[in-house]
Nucleic acid binder design. Structure first.
Lengths: 197, 197
DNA sequence: GACAAAAGATGTTCAAGAACATCTTTTGAA
DNA sequence: TTCAAAAGATGTTCTTGAACATCTTTTGTC
């Protein structure tokens, strides 16, 4: 068999990385297969050697966020990989609601980049989306102080808040208002989690 | 001048209503002008007598939610128009996070229906989006009990939560999980607002 | 070194759709 | 009743893009 299996895998990964970047910025529909392949340094024809249809890329692009190697800059900048417990949970919140994340259109979390696209998509994409969400819920759940309600419940609420806040910030088209939304959401998350600012 | 001004206005409104419904369900890109016009009982050609470009419809479709006549069923069912203060604020939250809203793909709030589409759109759509958000913030702000933080801040956080919760619920593709997200978000909103369940 | 199997490139098909040009219909005003 | 201005219908253009068919290149195996 010519072209080693790793080679194909690498190419496939390159395609997915290009797709995620372009999808993140422009949405599923607005990006053509040709653009993605070209961005990955290939031509349009080879696409179907890796995927049966464009839709299959949606799922892969969403999962790339948690399967790709290494955190994004906006994550690395705010999260100390050695941190644990409350400190870690706070770092995740800070990273998520950071200006860096807000500005990083290419590398942002898929929960922010395409919620409505996924809501309209097929079960496969939704499943990928759910996985990303559950991963985030899990990260909070494991690092939340005890409270009157179950940790999962509070973790889910925190995810709702940070996702909602960033989604709104990205959509209002006003930097100052976006800053206000991010800052406000962060304070309220801290309150809800029982953390000091 | 043939065709009275009201007639034109009515037709325009019909186009916007069709557009909102179809956009809500399928997104801006996936719906063609022909489909919208046809849904409104017209043919594609007449579109440009009302709008210069398809993009102009995006803004109109978003604003239709707050400019259209009468609340959606999911709103009417949970909100007593005579209610005031905390009772009203609770009704708004209940309506927003209701199963009725979740199920109403055509009539849902634009903040839920197309956050990512708007985030990628031009300033005009974003401005419309902002208006819808500010209207919601205002509704909460005016009806929140006193607390240690400014009412606007807490109102903004509530909006982040309910929007985030519904956006996630719509995207996970699992009814049970969606129910959990809605219920959990609601409890946490009540906690955050200082309301009893 | 020849061979073949798979990756990737090139080229084609077909459909969709935005924009607009040009007809036809409507209806208020004269 | 006629006229004309604007709404709406019909028809056309041109571009884009998904899918796939068919070449060409690569490289491991014999």
């Amino acid at each position: 068999m010519p072209y080693t299996a790793e080679h194909k895998q690498q190419t496939r990964t390159r395609i997915i990385e290009s797709a995620r970047r372009l999808f993140n910025r422009n949405g599923f529909e607005a990006v053509s297969i040709g653009e993605i392949m070209s961005d990955a340094g290939l031509t349009h024809g080879g696409f179907y050697k890796h995927f049966a249809a464009k839709e299959d890329l949606y799922q892969a692009a969403v999962l790339q966020f948690i399967c790709g190697d290494g955190p994004e800059q906006w994550q690395a900048k705010h999260i100390d990989p050695n941190a644990k417990g409350e400190a870690l949970a706070r770092m995740i919140v800070d990273a998520y609601l950071s200006r860096d994340h807000y500005d990083d259109l290419d590398g942002s979390c898929p929960l922010i980049a395409f919620p409505s696209d996924v809501a309209r998509g097929n079960g496969t994409v939704k499943d990928a989306f759910r996985q990303v969400m559950e991963m985030m819920v899990g990260a909070f759940e494991a690092n939340l102080p005890k409270g009157k309600r179950p940790a999962r419940e509070r973790a889910l609420a925190l995810v709702s808040m940070v996702v909602g806040g960033m989604v709104l910030a990205r959509s209002v088209g006003d930097e100052d208002l976006a800053d206000e939304i991010r800052a406000t959401t962060r304070r309220q998350v801290y309150d809800a989690a029982g953390w000091q600012l």
